[in-house]
């Protein structure tokens, strides 16, 4: 009974992960510009990968493989947001502007507050 539950949970995670990766890939193609594309790309390697890893951990049971999978998960947890940040930052430094940016008219007092904060 437990085995069946674990199996079901594992497959749920795997399929969910696969779905998220698929969504990410689709978004990467569909999104209009660089910055919006980063969002689906981020989904792929953080949430999608983590779900798949969780599913695999449930498949592997208690073994050395599980430990390794957790380590991979931890590594991804640190690296994938960082790489997304680095890419976005590099694009900003290089002077790439968002294509469909709508700059909201800022109330004047808030702008001065920002100035002061700096």
């Amino acid at each position: 009974m437990i085995a069946l539950l674990v199996e079901a949970a594992s497959w749920t995670f795997l399929l969910l992960g696969a779905f998220l990766v698929l969504v990410g890939a689709l978004g990467l193609v569909r999104m209009p510009d660089f910055y919006t594309r980063l969002h689906p790309a981020g989904i792929t390697d953080s949430l999608g990968a983590d779900f798949i890893l969780t599913g695999l951990v449930l498949q592997a049971g208690f073994s050395l493989v599980t430990v390794k999978l957790f380590l991979i998960g931890a590594f991804l947890f640190f690296t994938s947001p960082t790489s997304t940040h680095a890419i976005a930052n590099a694009a900003l430094v290089a002077g790439l502007k968002p294509r469909h940016a709508v700059v909201p008219p800022r109330p004047p007092e808030k702008a001065t507050q920002d100035e002061e904060a700096r």
């Binding site: 590594f75 640190f78 690296t79 960082t82 940040h85 680095a86």
Partner: peptide, 15 residues
Amino acid sequence: HHLVLRVVTKVLIGP
């Protein structure tokens, strides 16, 4: 000036 990169790199180099 890349604070995030520096912190994460420090965390990761050991592993």
